[in-house]
Write a protein that binds this DNA or RNA. Sequence first.
DNA 1: CTGCTACATAAATGAATACTTATATGGTTG
DNA 2: CAACCATATAAGTATTCATTTATGTAGCAG
Lengths: 114, 114
Amino acid sequence: MEKIKMNIGQAADLFKIMGDRTRLSMIAMMNRRECCVCDFTECFQMSQPAVSQHLKKLRTLGLINERKEGYWTYLSLNEDSPFYEMIPELIAVIPDIDAHISSLITSCSREDCC
Amino acid sequence: MEKIKMNIGQAADLFKIMGDRTRLSMIAMMNRRECCVCDFTECFQMSQPAVSQHLKKLRTLGLINERKEGYWTYLSLNEDSPFYEMIPELIAVIPDIDAHISSLITSCSREDCC
DNA sequence: CTGCTACATAAATGAATACTTATATGGTTG
DNA sequence: CAACCATATAAGTATTCATTTATGTAGCAG
């Protein structure tokens, strides 16, 4: 974990990234387990390029790691990010978040991926 | 405190509102004490209409209360908002937030207002 | 090699955002 | 009443954003 001193502007950047329903759900899902891009397109019923653009923003902030395996790219929260420790705490503040994410995951789980 | 069930979209709306340096600072300041508009224009070195537009967004989400007294309008966090309980918890996650807000307040405190 | 799969990138578009300048409003002071 | 103060609103502008369609790329299967 990098020892970067955070200022309010950087904190606001994190909130801004999390201020979108799709990205907030992505982050909450990755906070549980590794995901691949097709998980997101499935769960959010969203086009693959749209998901990819959101991932690009997460990457730009340094929030995620990628691990390639076979066809798939597995995404997870980057432990070296200065935001890494904040994320689970922010997620935990959201009421009923576990139930929401669970239903998101189970409602679209696919046997052939992840 | 209203008993509204929160979904991820509403949570994202809150993060989005907090995803701006100015508004995040406003919220963190009001989390400590009542503020008036002129406090914000002073602290952020920002035009009065710009501050007013940000306040409008906070009002639209129902985050703030207003109390008029003489020339000034005093603003505070609205205890009846479904987000009210989340705010101090979200603020608390930001590293060194207390020091940042303290220096913001002391650096521009004015004798003639608030 | 050929075709397929998972994903990224590019370009275009419409909507939202943050700010500015100018003007309005409503309470206060004299 | 008139002048003034704190604040809101309006209108304009430049930037950012979320999404789409189209295309590119790298790895795998046959």
